[in-house]
């Protein structure tokens, strides 16, 4: 889960010095365990316990069993849909990170107010309700949407394009547009911390700009890149509205299966099991990403 943990191993007991003074650290430790235990572990654990129950005649039966988990693997639809959803969200994460990196890089190279103002401008669209944005994007992408009408008008195309009309491309594009700001910020924060002395040393030693970038800047910004990809991936996989609204009949993702268990299907036990599985998959994907990130540093 943690990108920089290898570095942390070397720096064990960062605050050991201050631990000699007063009750601060002990209080800190108390807060750090009590808050998550009460507000996160207690509610979530008791809810995920539902995943071992089952439904009978519209009522939840409190018998412990692994039936819900077995069903996930036995039924033909769940694994493929989860796989496709993961692929989709990984693509979104990759795309958002790839597009976000140059922007973060430019921001980090700017000076003073301009840098922070531009950074804030990247984040401002996040405050425009995403439902409104999805509606707007949809009216741009549709078969008679603004994009097609504009391109027909300019004569770039003769027939309306259908590549972005209610398919997975549209989902990919929309999610990326919605989530790019979440990618730019962590990368920017990582780039901003790279000491100038390191870069200057590299240049002094005769390294080219490209070499400096590949050997110094890129590896040092990698924790930020991983964080960015993680944010985007998780937010994309939790979003069940966008795929439905711009994906047409192919906009069916795992998030929607999970959601349907809690509504009309009323199968909370199965929904809880699916969520647990989703969480495990997401955590594994992120852990894998961290592993890769750490190996290359």
């Amino acid at each position: 889960m943690l990108a920089g943990s290898r570095r942390a191993v070397g720096d064990q007991m960062i605050f050991v010095g201050s631990a000699r003074h007063g009750y601060g650290p002990r209080l800190l430790a108390l807060i750090s365990y009590v808050l998550p235990a009460v507000f996160i572990i207690a509610p979530l654990a008791s809810f995920l316990a539902y995943s071992f129950f089952r439904m009978e005649n519209g009522q939840i039966v409190h018998d412990l069993s692994l039936g819900n988990y077995r069903r996930f693997f036995a039924d033909a639809i769940f694994v493929p849909v989860l796989w496709q959803t993961c692929l989709l969200c990984l693509s979104v994460a990759a795309l958002a990170t790839l597009i976000g990196y140059p922007v973060a890089f430019l921001l980090a190279s700017l000076k003073g107010r301009r840098r922070h103002f531009l950074l804030l401008m990247v984040l401002v669209p996040l405050l425009m309700s995403y439902i409104i944005k999805i509606y707007a994007i949809r009216s741009i992408l549709g078969g008679n949407g603004f994009l097609n009408r504009f391109m027909l008008w300019t004569g770039v195309i003769e027939q309306p394009l259908t590549v972005f009309v209610f398919n997975l491309n549209a989902v990919l594009l929309t999610l990326t547009v919605l989530l790019i700001p979440f990618a730019i910020l962590p990368i920017f924060l990582a780039l901003e911390r790279i000491p100038r002395s390191l870069i200057e040393a590299s240049v002094d030693l005769g390294a080219s700009s490209l070499q400096t970038f590949v050997r110094i800047i890129l590896p040092l910004s990698l924790p930020g890149v991983i964080t960015a990809a993680t944010f985007v991936f998780v937010l994309a996989i939790g979003d069940f509205l966008t795929p439905q609204m711009v994906g047409g009949q192919s906009g069916f993702t795992f998030g929607r299966i999970v959601f349907s268990q809690f509504g009309t299907a009323f199968n909370w036990p199965f929904g809880a099991a699916l969520s647990a599985i989703l969480a495990i998959v997401v955590i594994s994907v992120i852990a894998l990403g961290n592993r890769v990130g750490q190996r290359s540093t």
Partner: peptide
Amino acid sequence: LKGNVLSFYTTPDEALQLYKSND
């Protein structure tokens, strides 16, 4: 039916928007 359908909508306004920007 799914093969014949452009999209499955959920709200009336969504259907209207779909109608306006598609055939």
